[in-house]
Design a protein around this nucleic acid. Structure first.
Length: 499
RNA sequence: GCCCCGUUAGUCUAGCGGCCCAGGACGUCACCCUUUCAAGGUGAAGAUCACCGGUUCGAAUCCGGUACGGGGUACCA
């Protein structure tokens, strides 16, 4: 067992960060910064950009990806932005190394140049399909004579370098979650390790980078299991010590199959924009495929750092359950965030909606105290940050948007009775200290008695008049937060609506 | 087709040979609390532990096969 642990996340910058990737990063961080440290080992998490596919590069996606991780609060110890002892952390900048190593393997007879054209490969594949044979490269160039190779080289024919897999025996891929996976070597292809443009394929690049960056544990998606024997053989051929492999489980969409765009958001940004909290996302990632005791549901990142172990991650894929994520998000908002914290998180949405001043979001914002108060009132009713502007609107805006007059008249009540209630309320209001919820409540209950109505029959019209809706936080807190001046105006408005 | 991985309620999971005719959570339903909506509380329904064989005094747990689901099968990662 090594005295230190180094793991890495190596995304290709071809789009936005998928939540499967985000979960992988979290596991890496928990492993390096949590489990490793608890076991008394030095743990490092490194971020490396795998940009060897020049055709699929998307401008800015590496930066976008890092921004997403920062938002989640997941930190890396080394990476393209902060550097580190194993720089560079961008694959394309390491290009020359891969060429050298591929050439070395060729000279040792462990790899070979292949001059087959894409057309020929296509033909071979089609023929195999017709004859129902397992598809794969037919090793056409594996036994080319030295003269043939030289002649083609001299003629300037483009080539790739393929790894020469052993033709017999078996390759064992030890997997931390699954145990040994055994492959028959003759079933494994001679895969391309260096492309004709001189860039390595994933297979060569990961092995070289992981080795040169001293990666001890390779965590990645399960889609790499089938090519893992190649990687094992590559380590062998190069005489390098093998890392420990841990292929993590896949996240499925509710209909089975890889989680994809069809089923709502899959990129981290989608969730951010939908008003999810990083805490809830991380909490959910932990619950998907891992469990402490089968009972605990709420975990903070600190809790996880204290308890997470990579070995306990389940190897079986799990279905992404949006409803449970939503529940967790609400749990975090309703019970685990302080009102001050909630206020700060809700403010950017309020600014965007034009409901509070567009000033920097901090405790010095002119309406910070107001929003803290509202956050206290609405904490239990908010499931997503995106709901805040709507739920807080009637507290922050002077003029209520028009609402249906029928709303003012509860079932089993006549408009005339409602008018009586509102008239009485309008008269009562100037004398009340709204900040004293008890006094307000007592006054309105007395009013109900005097009008020979149930309290609810008095409360409801006042609620609607004050807010323009049938649902709100507790009436008396709500009235205080709306403020006396606006309240009087709104009750007057309701009275005119009823007449 | 071939190779590989997986399989406990609709979903996420606990379980590592007797404590399990299977525990927790989401969702669903009912009731309670209540000035509305939430939040909260209580409770209910829901799993022949994929199936079939075997090992064992005893299996969700170990072994084999089958079925189903998923992944891979590129000069993409």
């Amino acid at each position: 067992m090594t005295d230190h642990i180094r793991v890495r996340f190596a995304p290709s910058p071809t789009g936005s960060l998928h939540i499967g990737g985000a979960r992988l990063v979290m596991y890496n961080v928990l492993f390096a910064h949590g489990q490793a440290k608890r076991e008394g080992r030095d743990g490092k998490f490194v971020l490396r950009i795998e940009d060897t596919d020049r055709k699929r590069l998307i401008e800015g996606s590496a930066e976008n990806l890092m921004e997403g991780l920062r938002w989640l609060g997941l930190k890396w110890d080394e990476g393209p932005d902060i550097g580190g002892p194993y720089a560079p952390y961008v694959q394309s900048e390491r290009k020359h190394r891969y060429g050298e190593i591929a050439e070395q393997l060729v000279s040792e007879g462990k790899a070979y140049r292949c001059f087959c054209t894409p057309e020929r490969l296509q033909e071979v594949r089609e023929q195999q399909q017709r004859e129902k044979l397992p598809p794969g490269y037919d090793r056409h160039c594996r036994n080319l004579s030295a003269e043939d190779v030289q002649a083609k080289l001299d003629a300037g024919e483009p080539y790739v370098i393929r790894f020469a897999m052993p033709l017999e025996g078996e390759t064992i891929v030890p997997d931390l979650l699954r145990g040994d996976i055994v492959y028959q070597n003759d079933k494994i292809d001679d895969l391309v390790i260096l492309k004709s443009d001189g860039f390595p394929t994933y297979h060569l690049a990961v092995v070289v980078d992981d080795h040169e960056m001293d990666i001890t544990h390779v965590t990645r998606g399960p889609e790499w299991i089938p090519t893992a024997p190649l990687h094992v053989q590559l380590y062998k051929a190069l005489g390098w010590e093998m890392p420990i492999f841990a292929h993590m489980p896949l996240i499925l969409n509710p209909n089975g199959g890889k989680l994809s765009k069809r089923h709502g958001g899959v990129s981290l940004n989608d969730f951010r924009e939908a008003g999810y909290l990083p805490e809830a996302l991380l909490n959910y990632f932990a619950l998907l495929g891992w469990s402490l005791d089968g009972k605990t549901e709420i975990y903070s990142m600190d809790d996880l750092l204290q308890h997470f172990t990579l070995e306990k991650v389940s190897p079986s894929p799990s279905t992404f359950d949006r409803a449970k994520l939503d529940w967790l998000n609400a749990q975090w908002i309703n019970h685990h965030l302080t009102t001050e914290d909630l206020a700060l998180r809700v403010m950017p949405w309020l600014i965007e909606a034009g409901m509070i001043a567009a000033a920097p979001v901090d405790t010095n914002h002119p309406q910070y105290a107001t929003v803290v108060g509202l956050s206290g009132l609405l904490k239990d009713r908010i499931h997503f940050l995106t709901e805040a502007p709507d739920l807080m609107s009637y507290f922050l805006i002077d003029d209520l948007p028009d609402y249906d007059t029928d709303l003012l008249v509860p079932k089993k009540m006549e408009a005339a009775d409602v008018l009586k209630v509102l008239d009485a309320a309008a008269e009562l209001l100037p004398r009340l200290d709204l900040d004293s919820h008890e006094q307000t409540e007592a006054a309105f209950r007395a009013l109900a008695e005097q009008l020979e109505m149930k309290p609810g029959q008095v409360f409801m019209p006042i609620r609607v008049a004050a807010t323009g809706r049938a649902q709100s936080p507790g009436l008396f807190e709500t009235l205080a937060a709306v403020g006396k001046e606006r309240l009087i105006a709104r009750i007057d408005l309701a009275r005119t609506k009823l007449r």
